[in-house]
Amino acid sequence: MKQLVSDKKTGGDLLLINKEQDFDRLFYSRDQENKYFTIAWNRGEKQTVTIDGVVHEFMPNTILPLMFNQSFYFERATDVVAWQFNREFYCIIDHDAEVSCVGFLFGMGEELFISLDEPAQYKLQLLFNIFIEELNTPDNIQNEMLLVLLKRLIIFITRLARSKYIPDPKLHDERLDVFRKFNLLVEAHFRTQHSVNYYAQLLNKSPKTLSNLFALYNQKTPIQVIQSRIIIEAKRLLYYTNKSTKQITYELGFEDAAYFCNFFKRHTSLSPLEFRNGKEIVSVGK
């Protein structure tokens, strides 16, 4: 079952997907025009989810936020409840002060698997039931009601994610905001800007300050975050498109194809051509 509410004036879409046999996204082909953020909830037994060619374990009663530019499919889609929305329906960037999820829940560069305890399952089930009720009540305030519910859903999941990934409440302050803004800036500029200094200047911080801050939240350094995002995009372009290595080189802000090939091989142990020809699916345990 797929329920869709659209705003013809803004182009905003909100979808609720439940017990769909075939639920997936292929961003670099058929789904590129529909830039939907996804919040997926596995209500069944343990299964796998394949994200950009990498297989992850998707445990029972776990939430998985996914960016609009990720391609994915589920082993058992019928066990998954998912909310999808585009920026036209609710722009999480413009309304970051409301939900504080940008650069953390969405756009951190790594998948977040957020487990639900029994109280959280109960609350999410109630929220799901209200979504169903509002989707089945078409009136002149339906979109407003659904927007409020979506905000509540995002805030609820962001709180759960913080308690798991940032358990120390002392770190829930402006330092987290800098961390989130860095991730957001990398997402916006990684194709043209590859140096930590560039992002540090935008944030009015020194590169050393950023490195110290990342040590609190992430095992990666700032430069590793930038390079990891470039590699993710390179793999997507090699995996899902027919663009040449030279085209990908320039698209990702490199001036020399040989340098890009060396960069890619240093981080993946494969040349771009070897990766494309192999297209090996990698399993990641969670």
Rank of each mutant, 00 (worst) to 15 (best):
I154H: 02
L150M: 09
F37H: 12
F214N: 02
E280N: 08
L270N: 08
S163Y: 08
P119K: 00
L185E: 08
I223S: 14
F23N: 03
L150V: 07
F179A: 06
E233T: 04
L270I: 04
I141H: 12
E33V: 09
K19L: 06
F182M: 07
L171D: 12
E280K: 11
Q193E: 15
I230W: 00
K46T: 15
A97Y: 14
I226Y: 00
Q84F: 01
F37A: 09
P167Q: 07
V186A: 03
L160P: 05
D177Y: 11
C101V: 14
I166Q: 01
E98Q: 14
L176Q: 14
A120N: 05
L210W: 06
R191C: 10
D13H: 13
R162S: 06
P138A: 11
S6M: 12
C91P: 03
P167M: 06
S269Q: 14
L153G: 07
T137E: 10
L273R: 14
A215Q: 13
L124A: 02
V102L: 14
M67A: 15
K265R: 14
D96S: 02
E45S: 14
F156S: 04
Y165Q: 05
L153V: 03
T249V: 03
H267L: 13
L238T: 06
H56T: 03
E280S: 06
I92L: 12
Q219F: 08
A258I: 15
A82H: 07
Y259Q: 13
L216E: 15
Y240V: 00
A120R: 01
D117Y: 06
S29F: 10
F68T: 03
N212R: 14
E111P: 10
D94P: 02
L15D: 05
G278K: 12
S100F: 12
L252Y: 01
R152N: 12
E251H: 10
L160N: 00
N42H: 08
L176H: 09
F27Y: 15
L26K: 07
G285S: 14
W41C: 02
I166M: 05
S206F: 09
Y199L: 01
L252R: 04
N183G: 07
Q21R: 12
N129C: 05
E110Q: 11
F85K: 06
F104V: 06
H56C: 08
L112P: 00
V178F: 12
V5N: 02
M67S: 15
F254G: 05
T78D: 15
N242A: 11
K35D: 07
K46N: 10
I141L: 12
N204T: 10
L237V: 02
Q47G: 05
H267N: 13
E111G: 05
I92T: 13
F263K: 01
A82E: 06
Y259P: 00
Y239Q: 15
A188H: 11
E251R: 08
S206D: 10
E111K: 09
L16Y: 10
L105A: 07
V49Q: 04
Q3V: 13
D117H: 01
T241G: 08
A257I: 02
D79F: 04
L147E: 15
E233W: 01
T137H: 12
K164G: 00
E88K: 12
A77G: 09
L26V: 06
S29H: 13
Q3L: 13
T221I: 03
N212Y: 11
W83R: 05
R159P: 01
